[in-house]
């Protein structure tokens, strides 16, 4: 059942605590971004403001969260406010001690990025030798501490044919979930899209196979959060909004407190050091446009539009500067 109205505040805040990173990945959406990093006190100040609106989930993205020396202090504070905290990390800096701190500070889940089962391919994609080995070690340290583990893989040209092996690897590492993220044409992802992105037909082929696998597999969850899949299968029972979830269920906070609809849409709608989250959520013109997209071009006559709402708004915006443009990954013919 779909919600007839937007939730009264976001369900998830994706939070870039830092844009610093020890890696230089070829697909990274945030690498070109620069913003001053807020000190511990101001991050906590914003956390307290967000908690007032009962946002249940915070997910740290990045930049590499483990580069923040106050990461576990912030997480302990956030869990004390009632947040369920998770993060996505490349795992390179994870140690047994940090895994223990992750448990003690209350992380609900930790996601490790692994993009191939072949170490040399992952290392090349991530531009860091030894990164696959470190990611696997990080997963083991977290499991030993009893921290719930998820694996994230960005699907692109280097791995789209081996996603079944990626699922097997995640299962072997003890992950509860593997997220097969769709490639985003943002940041370095935009610069390198001709080399790394798939064609619309390849995306269709990938999703048909991945959805078939998801329906068979019972010992690990396979997540593919891409609105474009609404064109090839019925929305699952748990989908409560149509189209992109950004700005409808989630928002993004950058390292300086700026708020954007999602990490892949670099349009600032406010800053939580001075603005009120609920005011932005209810009154932002940008969010209003994202929530009420208007079909254009091939979407005007497409029978799937009412289900996919034009697909991923971030991809449309990155390639055309218009939220309403058709998703460039869309395989449905004109």
């Amino acid at each position: 059942m779909y919600m007839s109205r937007i939730p009264f505040s976001p369900i998830t805040i994706n939070w870039t605590l830092t844009f610093r990173c020890n890696f230089n990945c070829r697909h990274c959406y945030s690498r070109p971004e620069k913003a001053p990093e807020l000190p511990t006190g101001q991050v906590k100040e914003i956390m307290a403001k967000v908690a007032k609106y009962k946002v249940p989930f915070i997910n740290y993205g990045g930049g590499e969260p483990l580069l923040r020396s106050d990461l576990f202090d912030l997480t302990g504070y956030a869990t004390g406010l009632g947040f369920n905290v998770s993060m996505n990390t490349n795992g390179f800096l994870m140690t047994e001690e940090k895994a223990a701190l992750a448990r003690e500070s209350g992380f609900r889940t930790v996601g490790i990025s692994i993009d191939s089962t072949k170490a040399e391919l992952h290392d090349d994609f991530r531009n860091t030798k030894g990164s696959h080995k470190k990611a696997v070690s990080a997963a083991k340290f977290l499991k030993e501490q009893g921290v719930r583990l998820t694996i994230s893989s960005v699907i692109c040209r280097v791995n789209h044919m081996e996603f079944e092996e990626l699922v097997r690897q995640a299962r072997d590492l003890g992950a509860e979930q593997i997220s097969l993220h769709n490639y985003k044409c943002a940041g370095m992802g935009f610069t390198n899209k001709d080399e790394l992105d798939l064609t619309p037909e390849e995306w269709k082929e990938f999703y048909l196979k991945a959805i078939a696998l998801r329906e068979k597999v019972t010992d690990i969850r396979i997540s593919m959060d891409d609105p474009i899949t609404a064109t090839i299968h019925k929305a699952p029972e748990q989908a409560i909004v149509k189209g992109s979830t950004c700005g409808k269920l989630s928002l993004n906070i950058r390292a300086n407190g700026d708020v954007t609809p999602c990490g892949f849409i670099p349009v600032v709608i406010g800053n939580l050091l001075k603005d009120d989250l609920k005011d932005l959520w209810d009154n932002s013109n940008i969010l209003e446009k994202m929530r009420n997209k208007k079909p254009k071009e091939k979407c005007l006559t497409c029978k799937h539009y009412e289900d996919c709402l034009g697909g991923c708004t971030a991809r449309a915006y990155a390639t055309t500067g218009d939220f309403n443009s058709p998703d460039p990954h869309c395989w449905v013919a004109k």
Binding site: M1, M3, S4, P7, I11, P56, F57, E176, Q177, R221, S223, P236, E237, Q238, A239, I240, L249
Partner: peptide
């Protein structure tokens, strides 16, 4: 009766 008033998140899936 078809309108949601409570949201639940279970194993990454949302329900109302």
């Amino acid at each position: 009766s078809g309108e949601g008033t409570v949201l639940l998140v279970e194993s990454g899936m949302m329900h109302q």
